[in-house]
Write a protein that binds this DNA or RNA. Structure first.
Length: 189
DNA sequence: GTTTAAATAT
DNA sequence: GATATTTAAA
């Protein structure tokens, strides 16, 4: 017997078993039309290369593990079936992967909760769910980037900072070396 | 007591 | 929509 709230995936006894999904012929995809004809302003950009929501692996049923669903008498999770309000969702690796892909396709500018939710096309996934996960994900990215400081573009650096020219070619800018008149040769007669 | 993950409030 | 705070679990 598993507890509702304590149902952390720590002891996840039911990882995404493909055995039960063998006979799950994805009902259909109604988001296709929504994504295509709704807002073609920015949507078209990421559509290229994207497998299209229909082809993506159906993760809708992963929101509630089979064992948990059985515990609460929830039968086959068809579209429209949400999680029990008292169970908090679990970001499975599959869900997170889809989340990351959505963010990647949307880009830094378009990766906002509303767009991500729509692109992920996961039944029952709310904007708040994604917003919370997005916050955590951004913190993760910040930490990751901090660990590996991106080298600044060498083209923007002064020539003396890049590397010593092999043939002594001058790039136009003068290095901060002392002025040539350092010795102030007073060549007086 | 600390850290992590998701929800919730601002 | 972004960020801060809170809650719950490990």
């Amino acid at each position: 017997m598993l507890s509702a709230r304590g149902g952390r995936p720590h002891d996840a006894d039911a990882p995404p078993s493909s055995s039960s999904s063998s006979s799950s012929p994805r009902p259909r995809c109604m988001v296709d039309a929504a994504a295509a004809g709704d807002s073609s302003d920015r949507v078209m950009e990421w559509e290229t290369g994207l497998p299209s929501p229909c082809e993506m692996t159906p993760v809708s049923h992963q929101l509630v593990p089979p064992a948990l669903a059985a515990a609460f008498g929830i039968g086959a999770l068809e579209a429209g079936v949400l999680l029990p309000s008292f169970a908090r969702m679990v970001w499975t690796p599959e869900l997170h992967h889809r989340f990351v892909e959505a963010v990647a396709h949307l880009g830094e500018k378009g990766a906002v909760p509303k767009a991500i939710v729509r692109l992920m096309n996961v039944d029952g996934l709310t904007r708040e769910n994604v917003a919370s996960h997005l916050q955590k994900y951004r913190l993760y990215l910040k930490r990751t980037r901090a660990a590996t400081p991106p080298p600044p573009p060498a083209m923007y650096l002064p020539c003396f900072a890049a590397k010593p020219p092999p043939d002594g070619a001058n790039c136009g800018e003068s290095p901060p070396s002392r002025a040539p008149d350092a010795k102030t040769t007073t060549q007086i007669g």
